[in-house]
């Protein structure tokens, strides 16, 4: 996907990106600046991802959202002005998103993602889908697989957040530190010293599509074992995805009581289907899934954006394949599922 990057950076770019070039190197920065990214769903999480990759200096970001800014967005979506409630989310976000970095081509698309045909996606190197029903995620994932596009999806529900990555077969290079013996320079230190040396090596990582994760048989020996260590967030996210599919929206503070009841019944049904005990997702968690909490968007959006940067710069091993943030103990963990 990201081909060789022959174009040199300008002196202006070198100055603007000085610090990150010192961290990930010139080559990564050049690759970054060739990357075209589609971000679907510009709520709190989508806004964080856009901010981070625009600051990082990708080539182009398309913000796609057919919905309008809601009052709930105001507690996490900082790209749309507070006066934009009722206006299209992505259009309302353009001005601030572009101001983050004039060197990045920021575009707006106000159509519904489900109306987009396969060809639409071929103009991108990476697709990031948020606030989509599972059915749509599966469709996008399949299109991306066909077209060799790196696919991410994720959501923040209140205090909880996750993302999933399908990079298919992903090749990368990484620096590793190896020990190296060096000869003493002067007779002062006769002992042979061991110095650390950094070497670059290649690696690759194989990913599975999203449906493999959704289809996990939690009664199988392998996953029965994993179950006790699984973060509740995984199952909570499944329940919320089902909620979204069922009523075509996310839980809303305005209808908090009835929504919690619905969430409980979805939990009982879904966890039973998976053969997972309902106490994996206690009732108390449902109080914490409304709107999107800004610091959680920052955390999940920060990790997700860094994964996008890693992916397009083909530097360092990517997270394979799900990330969850637990707001109670502040644990951010990766799970390799469905492989």
């Amino acid at each position: 996907m990201v081909k060789d990057a022959p174009i040199e950076l300008t002196e202006d770019e070198a100055q603007l990106y000085d610090r990150q070039i010192r961290l990930w190197g010139l080559e990564s920065q050049k690759r970054l600046r060739c990357a075209r990214i589609l971000v679907v769903g510009i709520q709190g999480l989508g806004a964080e991802v856009c901010k981070n990759i625009i600051l990082g200096g990708v080539k182009a970001v398309t913000m796609l959202d057919h919905e309008n800014v809601t009052e709930e967005d105001l507690c996490s979506q900082f790209l749309a002005p507070t006066t934009a409630v009722g206006k299209n989310r992505s259009a309302a976000s353009l001005e601030r998103a572009q101001a983050l970095n004039p060197l990045v081509d920021v575009k707006v698309d106000t159509e519904n993602i489900s109306d987009k045909t396969d060809e639409f996606f071929t103009q991108f190197d990476v697709v990031v889908a948020t606030n989509c029903p599972v059915k749509e995620l599966l469709r996008l994932n399949a299109i991306c697989r066909n077209a060799d596009i790196k696919f991410f999806c994720g959501d923040v529900f209140g205090f909880y957040g996750y993302f999933f990555a399908d990079l298919q077969i992903h090749e990368y290079s990484e620096e590793v530190t190896v020990a190296k013996a060096v000869k003493p320079q002067t007779n002062n230190n006769k002992k042979q010293k061991i110095e650390e040396e950094k070497v670059t090596r290649k690696g690759s990582s194989i990913f599975v599509p999203l449906h493999d994760v959704l289809d996990i048989d939690w009664t199988s020996d392998e996953y029965k074992q994993k179950l006790s260590k699984m973060d509740s967030t995984f199952f909570l996210v499944r329940i919320l995805q089902c909620f979204r599919s069922e009523v075509n929206r996310n839980p809303k503070a305005a209808s908090i009581e009835s929504d919690i009841e619905l969430l409980k019944s979805i939990r009982d049904k879904e966890l039973a289907k998976m053969n997972v005990n309902t106490d994996k997702v206690p009732d108390s968690l449902f109080q914490m899934v409304f709107a999107q909490l800004s610091p959680v968007c920052a955390i999940v959006g920060g990790v997700l954006a860094q994964e996008i940067i890693k992916t397009v710069s083909q530097k360092d091993a990517p997270h394979n394949n799900m990330f969850f943030f637990n707001p109670n103990n502040h644990l951010g963990q990766i799970f390799c599922l469905g492989n």
């Binding site: 901010k51 990082g56 610091p295 955390i299 920060g302 860094q306």
Partner: peptide
């Protein structure tokens, strides 16, 4: 070297 993503993650944790 400081980068946007790590700062965002850490600041999120600070507010948590």
């Amino acid at each position: 070297p400081a980068i946007a993503t790590t700062n965002a993650i850490v600041a999120g944790l600070v507010v948590m």
